[in-house]
Design a protein around this nucleic acid. Sequence first.
DNA 1: TCGGGGGTGTCAGGTCGGTGTCAGGTTAAC
DNA 2: GTTAACCTGACACCGACCTGACACCCCCGA
Lengths: 222, 222
Amino acid sequence: MKFLLVEDNQELAHAISSRMQLDGHVVEHASNLKDATAFVETGEYDLILLDIMLPDGDGRSFLKTHRASDLDTPVIVLTARSQISDRIGSLDLGADDYVTKPFDHAELAARCRAVLRRRAGKSQTIIRSGGVEFDPVAGSMAVQGQPVTLRNRELRLLELLINAPGQIFSKQKLSDRLFSYDDDVSENAIEVYIARLRKHLDPSDLKITTLRGLGYRLDNDA
Amino acid sequence: MKFLLVEDNQELAHAISSRMQLDGHVVEHASNLKDATAFVETGEYDLILLDIMLPDGDGRSFLKTHRASDLDTPVIVLTARSQISDRIGSLDLGADDYVTKPFDHAELAARCRAVLRRRAGKSQTIIRSGGVEFDPVAGSMAVQGQPVTLRNRELRLLELLINAPGQIFSKQKLSDRLFSYDDDVSENAIEVYIARLRKHLDPSDLKITTLRGLGYRLDNDA
DNA sequence: TCGGGGGTGTCAGGTCGGTGTCAGGTTAAC
DNA sequence: GTTAACCTGACACCGACCTGACACCCCCGA
């Protein structure tokens, strides 16, 4: 997927784009409205991440003209916490979702996935695989029909893995997605969560395979 | 499907119609009651999205004459965030559903689908679930047949939850929906209202589940 | 203008569950 | 056999959440 990030804070912009690249997305970065407009006119994007406060104007005006020109690229608005009115107003202007700064990168990634999924026409968000039903919106899972309550972290870990079955996730990668910068956790934490998730998945056909020195992978042993 | 959108705010109108077009619908747009009447007399629509506050009158009068002339096109009313009392009348006048601004476009789309789907039967606004009868217009609720009077905030909270049962609402989302921009309330306020609503729902099968770190969810423990 | 009352949000104290760490055991690699 | 990576049961901590009490405010009637 190709994203356009419109954000004037260079540091934050770098953090976001590197995080998005972890997910395999291509990110192009504009620091102001002028550049953003130029980018949109010349390229096609799957998603736009739009900061509201920009040096040369209000992000909402961009959003407005963007929608007015019949472009239907989904937009997620980034706002500061205090500017609640911005979030609400931007929804009216056609934003697909908003995230308040400071935000968890894991959360932003989740929102992006949700928006893209919604846009793909799949209003059906429930993922079924190997005897597991997973509903990220409801935060619920059922294994062989039996409902299982997952905790916050377990949920997010499962969401990561199940969205890319068969892919190898290094512990570093998982750690990056599950935790934010400032809290530095030991790699063992990941091992623990993998174990907990494994227990939940035990009755199903989904197995988490360990690849020594490489990471983990979700497989379907049907 | 062919929709008629009656809305004087041009930006919002454009946002809505472009969104609806994404879903493959044709949208015609009237900015006032006069135009709306002309549209309805000349064309056939599958659904009407009707703003209440219009430059040349109250949308409800349009709704009334519309119903009086035996047209059974479903109508979804768009109202500003306000007291329940403001909405009284619109559903009595034959609206099929209403959405309060500001709204998620995804939510509006969902309401549209719901209205069109249940159009086969009768227009039904009272929600019955798990021993609870909820009438959002009258602002009344009954648990196991016993009438319960809810306060304004409790009503709006219940309304949010019951319209999307099984979905997780973060505290921030609930806060955005329940309160307006200028008053910034602590997250604890949400917790308090959840508790108050829980007490009311106690005799019923509807339970509000806490998902630590994620939010709340309305479940039916039938 | 005053007083009352219902609705509303805050606060403080308490509870409890998720969370990450640790230590010791197990397994794979060489 | 040695080593490093990984697994896992137990545990303590911290913060999210709950809740009873309270102060505030707006509306109403006197």
